[in-house]
Design a protein around this nucleic acid. Sequence first.
DNA 1: CGATCGTTTGATTACGTTCAATCGTTGTGG
DNA 2: CCACAACGATTGAACGTAATCAAACGATCG
Lengths: 216, 216
Amino acid sequence: MPAEDTLSLTGNRSPQAYERGVTLFRQGEPASAFFVVLSGWVKLYRITPDGHEVVIHVFTKGDTFAEAAMFLGGRYPASAETVSCARLLRIEASVFRMRIRENPELALSMLASASRHLKSLITQIEQIKVRSAPQRIAEFLIEALPQGDGGPTTFELPFEKALLANKLGMKPESFSRALSKLRAHGVTVDKETVRVEDPDKLQNFAVYEADDMVPQ
Amino acid sequence: MPAEDTLSLTGNRSPQAYERGVTLFRQGEPASAFFVVLSGWVKLYRITPDGHEVVIHVFTKGDTFAEAAMFLGGRYPASAETVSCARLLRIEASVFRMRIRENPELALSMLASASRHLKSLITQIEQIKVRSAPQRIAEFLIEALPQGDGGPTTFELPFEKALLANKLGMKPESFSRALSKLRAHGVTVDKETVRVEDPDKLQNFAVYEADDMVPQ
DNA sequence: CGATCGTTTGATTACGTTCAATCGTTGTGG
DNA sequence: CCACAACGATTGAACGTAATCAAACGATCG
């Protein structure tokens, strides 16, 4: 998006810094704005009627979220909260709606963004429906891994394991166990640090192998 | 959407009739069009690398689908197939892209539509993550039930149980068993016909009750 | 009438949850 | 400075739900 457009949207206001644990909006509230993440991490989640927290997604640098919500009866379908300190751009719906009428291209880029989210949700549904817990973790690792030469790669988990577990649709205990099962596939964990011996091999496990791990 | 707009989009072409089992597009194909369902049922699904079919959604009268796909690198992220005979409106991406530049309002209604899909997928993720098989079926029944006075209601399952099972993220066998468990909550099934004694009570089970069914 | 398909039922297995205890780190107050 | 709480993560044991494998049933169709 051209710089001039972004400026007209933010009204020349600078990005705001947030502490960890700040609620940006709650499900059911009128959707008055959407956000662009410049740095840090934000979780999008729902609280179910019986009190469970379900993490839908965790956004980070470069992501936008809640854009689509503005067009759906004006209510957020989920809540959002920073899970680390973060810098966010907040764009008001009223401003955006004005601009979109002057600039149809803006609508197209919004649609592109919404499409990416749709695709990501479709992928997530597929994951939860047919992949085992270890496979879902493997898939996450593959996605999160810094692009390398295919050789052994090391990186840091970006946020709490319990949050990641929830995002992947499992309990923290299951996450812990599933993660240690990945040791058989070249994954070693020390605190926040994860080392993947062979990303291609891990990928293969994530998508194809049901479970043919040989004991010993 | 005003009638004049729809006409300009379809190029005055009339809706096309499809047999059951017709593939409309396959995942990975260039997304050249999106669809409006006038009647019948269409399933949106993915085939995973290891050959499983995962049903993402089943669309019916009044739904549009694949609109967003046109904006995402031009590839469909899933496949679509009619599961009954159906009448569909097919709208070409090229035509649509032209029109959207002349008519920004069109983009807004597209965004609204994409938002509804986003919300529906978010709901689905929540369902699969935290609800049991019987609860997911109950939820589906509540949604599918014709609006009544809250009293006993009867309706017909709109398509195969195996398809519904897949959509709800379970195997046909599990579906069958889960459905019979709902007998304890006032649901009786005879072939395609489902009778719900007390929709409110069933709704309550779908959202709140973990499982406190009393034997006998 | 036999074949096929969708559905149901049965027995068994496997996975993830639940409940519970432990460990390690961090941070706080006496 | 250390004791102790608080929290996140891990581990263990028992349980429960859904998947799997297998068979049987009923309806439909050729």
